[in-house]
Design a protein around this nucleic acid. Structure first.
Lengths: 113, 113
DNA sequence: CGGTATCCCTATTGATACTG
DNA sequence: CAGTATCAATAGGGATACCG
């Protein structure tokens, strides 16, 4: 890692996308549960309210991490998939996984999920 | 990555520590600027208010990621260093760095720093 | 220098109800 | 099913002043 400038730092850019809990946890679901996730899947898996999930998904879509595919069926069906940019998060998720495995003792408060 | 349970997931544990922007960016400073960081160094480098920095440092210390060393000099001197647990974050930071380098185009709003 | 104490603003989140 | 609308609670964070 050869960071030379704090301005425009790659880590900063990365964490500006992954700035909050939900973004990480939503992306985790794609690696955990499968390539294609539906709105209600994510909601029940993560236990968040629909408006929060909607906001996070919109942001992630804007950032090019996930892609939304909507089918006008009845009932309607929406599927979210990782883009190549989203799939490229795998090393980060793996690194987080490894670290969380090696140091399981965080006194961080736990939520449902 | 073989996640079997959403409960007690290592990624969840990791992100509960690295839940916010500042934690990542504070830790980044240790890898960027050096092993030992002082309060004022971090504050001027990151451009945050002292109370916010104080809160983040306390939490990171509680979580065992950094260690606080206080010297009762005049003027007083405090130094923060990464613990082994904190140093073990290097792969995560590297992965974030790589991803942020490969995908520099996030429309995430930028701050100072 | 290394913080703490206030005050205040904003974003995030949950809860709930509702729509196409 | 896949969201949107609304209201309320909370935490994160900035600005500023102050203390040992």
């Amino acid at each position: 890692m050869k960071i030379t400038s704090r301005q425009n730092c790659p880590i900063r850019r990365a964490t500006s996308v992954l700035s909050d809990q939900w973004s990480f946890l939503i992306i985790r679901e794609f690696f955990l549960e499968g390539k294609r996730r539906r709105f209600q899947d994510l909601q029940s898996e993560l236990g968040l309210s629909p408006n929060t999930l909607s906001n996070r998904l919109k942001r992630l879509e804007q950032q090019g991490v996930i892609e939304r595919q909507i089918y006008s069926d009845h009932p309607p069906r929406a599927e979210y998939v990782l883009t190549s940019k989203g799939n490229a998060l795998a090393p980060i998720m793996n690194a987080l996984y490894d670290w969380g495995t090696e140091y399981p003792d965080t006194n961080g408060e736990d939520r449902n999920g």
